[in-house]
């Protein structure tokens, strides 16, 4: 999986040129090639009488390589993919890479906050950060909403539904935030 993340990052090319699309199709090819290269080292137990644990991986990785390569060919011939539609989407807008980077950054921050600061704090940071990245105005309102949302979720999930979300040092002493 880490392989996917690192190779899809350079796909950040302008939308008009299909460079990004070709790079992304190559991600499929490279995962397939990596799979084909490593599938041979899957140990086969001596008792195995059927096709064994390697056959299906070979098929799947072969399919990945073929499909990825096929898409690359299609794009090179000018048949680019049809971007997905959605209700809140402004298809004419240019991709807002800054907002995307901010969102990804806040999710990363959230991941590192869960254990030291507790889930509610991490969630409030994620919500207000994401709302800020998407131009929520005014900012204080977004922060207010995030605090309420985080506490309500902690109460409903941690308290009522018994999902053990860590309340964190700030709320450790409040009994109804635990299961």
């Amino acid at each position: 999986m880490s392989d996917l993340a690192s190779t899809s990052a350079p796909a950040a090319a302008p939308a008009k040129r299909p460079t990004g699309e070709i790079l992304f199709a190559l991600v499929f090819v490279s995962v397939g090639v990596a799979g084909l290269a490593t599938a041979g080292s899957i140990p086969i137990p001596p008792s195995e009488t059927g096709i064994g644990p390697r056959a299906f991986p070979y098929i799947v990785c072969g399919l990945l390589v073929l499909c990825g390569a096929g898409v690359v060919l299609q794009v090179l011939r000018g048949k680019v993919g049809q971007a997905e539609d959605s209700e809140d989407l402004d298809v004419t807008a240019k991709t807002d890479w800054v907002a995307l980077a901010k969102l990804v950054g806040f999710v990363v921050l959230h991941i590192f906050l869960i254990e030291p600061a507790g889930w509610p704090v991490a969630a409030a940071v994620l919500f207000s950060g994401a709302a800020w990245s998407l131009d929520a105005k005014p900012l204080w309102k977004a922060i207010g909403v995030s605090v309420i949302l985080a506490l309500v979720l902690q109460y409903v999930f941690g308290g009522l539904l018994g999902v053990s979300l860590p309340p964190g040092p700030l709320l450790e002493g409040v009994p109804f935030f635990h299961g």
């Binding site: 919500f127 977004a142 979720l153």
Partner: peptide
Amino acid sequence: PYLYAGILVFAALGAFSVNFSPSDVGILL
């Protein structure tokens, strides 16, 4: 902005509560 921020929080909650492991949220990302 609130809607999509909320979806992010919920997605992160769903991922975290699978095994209560922050690294799962990393896989989610």
